[in-house]
């Protein structure tokens, strides 16, 4: 009796948290004014938001009496791929020069995305 009530409350809380973080992520995407700043909002809040929604789904399945952990796969997949997507979008920003020029690295000559052959040179194959 009380156990199902606790599971229901936990489901509702994690659903609300996930919804709020998803909302804030997209709100940040719309509000922020610099391409690099915009990258911060969705890749973070979006990941935790969807992660929390999936946690709510796991808890709801537990409350229905048919426990399943399939959602863990989606969460793991999102947590592994989110940094890679963010890194690629950063590289696009750097490549298109649509952000501030970063400072020079400490020990090496340049950043790898900016390390392009001079124009006119044949493309390395």
């Amino acid at each position: 009796m009380t156990a199902t009530l606790i599971i229901d409350i936990a489901t509702a809380v994690s659903l609300v948290i996930g919804a709020v973080f998803t909302f804030v992520g997209s709100y940040g995407l719309l509000k922020l004014d610099d391409p690099m700043k915009r990258l911060h909002a969705p890749t973070k809040a979006g990941t935790l938001g969807v992660g929390s929604l999936l946690l709510g789904s796991i808890l709801a399945a537990l409350g229905r009496g048919e426990p399943s952990l399939q959602e863990v796969l989606i969460v793991a997949f999102l947590f592994v791929t989110a940094p890679i997507s963010a890194h690629f979008i950063c590289k696009v920003n750097l490549h298109r020069r649509s952000c501030d020029t970063p400072p020079a690295p400490v020990n090496d000559t340049t950043w790898s995305t900016l390390d392009t052959p001079p124009t006119g040179a044949p493309k390395p194959s």
């Binding site: 990941t47 940094p83 890679i84 890194h87 950063c90 590289k91 970063p102 000559t109 950043w111 790898s112």
Partner: peptide, 20 residues
Amino acid sequence: GTITLTPGTVSADLSDEGHA
């Protein structure tokens, strides 16, 4: 990956020899 997943910071690029 850790830096990107931790909010507030995004890792953008690696230097050409991998020292920074």
